[in-house]
């Protein structure tokens, strides 16, 4: 197997929402025992339906958790060059020192992440000036070069956020998140609430930035077609667990987990007239998940073993892992031609 340099290593990570209402304690296991690593210079997509823990996982990765969300177990280590840091063990100053310089974040709902009473120029200054550590003139030179490279006009800096369209604001936010050329970019639903044309522009921009800078990008979306076009590798989440992970092509053509197989089969394609079947049932309640494999109540392949014991995430191929007792019996439900071949 090929050797890869990992920039982020997560092992056995558990993050629960601990809710305490009038003495009744509830634990929502939104991220449960996740082990994964992100390589240098790759785009890693996290997929899954709503409430599968995608956004929680990404908040945990970005070290952006707030009570009631808490890390219960596990470790998470970033490696930026020679600097090795676990944000949950390091002090606040150390973590602040890597933010934006090494690790930046595009938040969900990027429409409202810019201060409405501050010109965008000021936001750039607030966010990027300190991490870049350049004299004022060179700093603005760098910002303007960066914007031009992303086909954005430096004049936009003088606007207030409400003067820009949604797509423009999203592009400025991505520009803001990438201006310091961080090695690691986390993007939570970067294209939600944008129309498809603008979506495409934003995605192309994000990918171009990643290519130019050679950074790693982790992004979340429930839109599988975005994953198909963007990601080098995809991790599929179900009920707070990573159920399958592998190169994009492999996941679409030869999934090794029944959930992935159904997820992929739900994608409509041009010329495909077959009816789309939905899986019975709903995703489980994360405060009281089913025992064993969390997918077993809905799984057509489930056997008795699935009801009692949790399948581990095991290697099933080149860079391909699946958490299923019957991964050998999973067959793709549809055939995908030309995934990743067409460009955006």
């Amino acid at each position: 197997m090929a050797e890869y340099k990992n920039i982020l290593t997560v092992s056995g990570l558990k993050a629960y929402y601990k809710l305490d209402h009038f003495g009744i304690t509830r634990e929502v296991r939104a991220v449960d025992d996740i082990t994964l690593s992100i390589r240098e210079n790759e785009i890693y997509g996290i997929a899954g339906e709503s409430s599968s823990g995608k956004t929680t996982l990404i908040k945990v990765l970005a070290a952006a958790i707030r009570p009631p969300l808490r890390i219960v177990e596990g470790s998470m280590t970033y490696r930026f060059g020679d600097k090795v840091i676990d944000p949950y063990k390091a002090g606040k100053d150390e973590v602040d020192a890597i933010r934006w310089k090494n690790l930046s974040y595009v938040m969900q709902g990027s429409m409202s992440v810019l201060n409405p009473v501050r010109r965008i120029r000021k936001s750039f200054e607030d966010f990027a000036f300190r991490p870049m550590g350049l004299p004022t003139r060179e700093f603005w030179g760098r910002v303007e070069t960066h914007l031009k490279r992303l086909n954005l006009s430096p004049d936009t800096l003088n606007s207030y956020p409400h003067e820009l369209s949604g797509g423009m604001r999203q592009r400025m936010t991505i520009a803001l998140a990438t201006v310091c050329q961080p090695q690691f970019i986390i993007a939570d639903e970067p294209t939600t609430a944008l129309d498809v044309v603008v979506q495409k522009d934003v995605l192309v921009m994000l990918r171009d930035v990643q290519k130019q800078m050679g950074s790693s990008v982790v992004f979340v979306t429930h839109d599988m077609s975005v994953h198909a076009n963007m990601a080098d590798r995809i991790g599929i989440m179900y009920a707070g667990r990573l159920v399958e992970e592998g190169p994009t092509r492999t996941l679409f053509t030869a999934p090794k987990h029944p959930y992935t197989a159904h997820l992929v089969a739900s994608l409509p394609r041009i010329g495909d007239r077959s009816p789309k079947a939905a899986l019975e049932g709903r995703p489980p309640n994360l405060s009281d998940p089913p025992p064993g494999c969390r997918f077993h109540p809905r799984c057509p392949l489930a056997i008795d073993k699935c009801k009692v014991s949790v399948p581990p995430l095991e290697i099933v191929g080149e860079s391909h892992r699946s958490a299923c007792w019957r991964s050998d019996d999973v067959r793709p439900l549809t055939r995908f031609e030309g995934v990743r071949e067409e460009t955006l």
Binding site: V95, R99, S112, V113, N115, R118, K122, D126, R130
Partner: peptide, 26 residues
């Protein structure tokens, strides 16, 4: 709890700056 405040905090913007220009200003 507004996104722009959370985001500025996440970006490691100094807390004096956040409290005056992001919170009190708004």
């Amino acid at each position: 709890t507004e996104d722009y405040v959370t985001y500025a905090e996440l970006a490691g913007v100094k807390s004096e700056r956040v409290v005056f220009f992001y919170v009190i200003r708004n």
